[in-house]
Nucleic acid binder design. Sequence first.
DNA 1: ACCTGAACACCGTTCAAGT
DNA 2: ACCTGAACACCGTTCAAGT
Lengths: 187, 187
Amino acid sequence: MSSSAREAILAAAKRTAQAHGYGGLNFRDLAAEVGIKAASIHYHFPSKADLGAAVARRYWEDTAAALESMLAENSDPLRCLQRYPDIFRKALESGNRMCLHSFMAAEHDDLPDAVKQEVQTFADVNVAWLSKVLSAAALAGSEQSEGRARAIFAAIAGAQLLARSRSDLALYDALIASYRAAGLLPA
Amino acid sequence: MSSSAREAILAAAKRTAQAHGYGGLNFRDLAAEVGIKAASIHYHFPSKADLGAAVARRYWEDTAAALESMLAENSDPLRCLQRYPDIFRKALESGNRMCLHSFMAAEHDDLPDAVKQEVQTFADVNVAWLSKVLSAAALAGSEQSEGRARAIFAAIAGAQLLARSRSDLALYDALIASYRAAGLLPA
DNA sequence: ACCTGAACACCGTTCAAGT
DNA sequence: ACCTGAACACCGTTCAAGT
């Protein structure tokens, strides 16, 4: 496969960025992981900005696909809403990693414009999906569903962030339970 | 004043860290801002870890003082709860900066232990204050108040993070309004 | 007490050059 | 097409020296 090096770089960069951010991405470590030299990465991604944008784009593409298949597998939109926090939980389960969007949101001031663009699209994809599911579950009118969707997305990102800072999965679960008890998420 | 250089370093480092994180701190830029040379910072802070820990400590000390004075100025605990999100709003107003705790929570894997310690204390201070105020406002039983306090802290951090990623203060306000509408925050 | 110049080891990034 | 060596810029740190 002619694109296997490129794919391997993308996969390794995604994993690293979820733990160390865009700033934590570095060509030498990445290259070592893939089995080539640091300078060779520039053949596939001319600059770090290009790599970052490609990683962020792939990240939201994968998420969009996962969300769509979740919707396809569950006829009940309420069930989808209940499972949504599991996506963010999985990142914590996998080496206390976090959502790439959240990390890059923090790094906003240091991000090339092309990367910022893809980061925004990740949020848009999640909010649009949540909004659609909220409407389908008749949990929010079509005018309010987007606002509620944004609130859910932001709150879950915050829960993941706090849980990560303690390396505490149980804290994440407790926060999601609190959101449900408070009425932000459906029980 | 014998400590003015030290204080100036702390203040500059705090501002930088709120926009670029611990990783974005560097002695040369910091020194230039303060008007001394990079090597001189080591007289006040032997290592970067020492500086980072001192900044994070000062950050939660300042926050603790602000929270206590808010409580002293407002006899009504409910009023305090309503004003709590303003603290996070002010950081966004000030050059789209964010809570140091949130940024360092993201950077968790790359933080020296002494810094992690202070980051945790910031969360503890906020949660303890929120818990106390929730109980005083009779909005949560003493068993549930800590859980609710954590949920509020995490959700507001998430709102700030999302708003920062768009440089959009109105989005922050909308998210807080959504939290109120959903019942997570008192209206 | 407080500060600095100079040097060190290290690392990410770039680019001209290799095959 | 794909990869690399070597140079470059930068950063945290040290230390002998300065005031």
